[in-house]
Design a protein around this nucleic acid. Structure first.
Lengths: 193, 193
DNA sequence: ATTGTACCGGAGGCTAACCTCCGCTTCAAC
DNA sequence: GTTGAAGCGGAGGTTAGCCTCCGGTACAAT
């Protein structure tokens, strides 16, 4: 059960400017985008993001020529973290490892609304990100399957989309989201295999 | 197990104009909105809808003063159908009745993307619709619970949101959506009770 | 057939967001 | 400290969608 290192981080890091002020602005933009995308989805106003980051709209466009560039940079960041987490949970028992990784997946507020859209993007970086995520999480799923803890009549892609769908849904509160996720995961654990 | 008649239909029917051409336009608008909302979500362009319906934008606004009016009219229509279906499935066995109703719920393409938004609306008509839907589907769930076919540690609201989340998610194809829905429903059927 | 009225449609003003462009500022190399 | 280049920011042109308004049209009642 090997997990590849993170090809995504270079893609993102290479864009970060060298000058001090520029780098600060770059980070502020990513952080702001994280928040605004989380609140309003992937088609949030770029001017809102620039305003929140405390920079001019021109600066935003210099760093991220298109909305997609910005979105993908944020997204890549998250995927990066997810890959790292997959490493960290590798020592837990199979089912525990899988579900705690998926829970982490759910917790990402940035892409909570936007991930579903990203799942269908065809751009190169999206493909790379998805690939990375699959390489990181897929083995956890297979291990759980081999341990007889997860049904074998569904794919990892099925699983991710299921969880993504639930995580993108509005619930009354976090407790409800958790309850529902548990129900769905019970469905993954049982029968059908 | 009684199911209330449909308080929603009056709300909608009362808005339908009397004159022949006007009524035709009204229907065309609803039909067009159904399609466009399904494609682009609840914030689709109203002018697209008018164009597709083959009427002027003015006609749209005369019939539906706000985007919400239009959306809710379409939504109410769907809810209506769902209530009727709840009646029809009442004779099936408990689990079968519940799942076939839920499947019908999933099949609604109109609100596929938009239902999630609607679930959180606070407007009067949304409340009425949700109430109707709960009165129609809730008994199916309770019956399944009493028959030991559905877990009792989740609410009907939990269930609907789970299914709504899955139904609003983009899948590779319908087979995948079906597969995932089945997995989640397996989680509802088992344990935890 | 006439006529009053309800209805039609789209031109056009309004706003919001997109994105470019360029004069000014700030950094860091020497 | 000087200097040139990299970076800044926001004014403003452009587009898209919202919604109003009114001259003209088509229905249905008589």
């Amino acid at each position: 059960m090997t997990v590849q290192p993170f090809p995504v981080s270079q893609l993102v890091a290479s864009q970060r400017p060298h000058r001090k002020d520029a780098a600060r602005n770059y980070d502020a933009l990513i952080a702001a985008a994280r928040v605004i995308f989380a609140e309003s989805g992937a088609d949030a106003s770029l001017e809102d993001i620039a305003r929140r980051a405390g920079v001019g709209i021109g600066t935003l466009y210099r760093n991220f020529p298109t909305r997609r560039h910005l979105f993908e940079s944020v997204y890549a960041d998250e995927v990066n973290d997810l890959c790292r987490v997959a490493h960290e949970v590798a020592e837990l028992d199979p089912w525990e490892a899988l579900t705690s990784w998926l829970r982490r997946f759910v917790d990402y507020t940035v892409t909570k609304r936007a991930v579903r859209q990203a799942m269908d993007e065809k751009s190169e970086i999206s493909l790379v990100c998805r690939e990375s995520m699959y390489q990181a999480g897929g083995p956890l799923f297979e291990r759980a399957q081999k341990a007889g803890e997860a049904r074998t009549d569904m794919s990892f892609d099925d699983l991710l989309r299921m969880v993504a769908g639930i995580m993108a849904t509005n619930f009354l509160d976090d407790a409800q989201r958790d309850r529902v996720l548990n129900v769905a995961l019970d469905g993954v654990r049982t029968a059908g295999g």
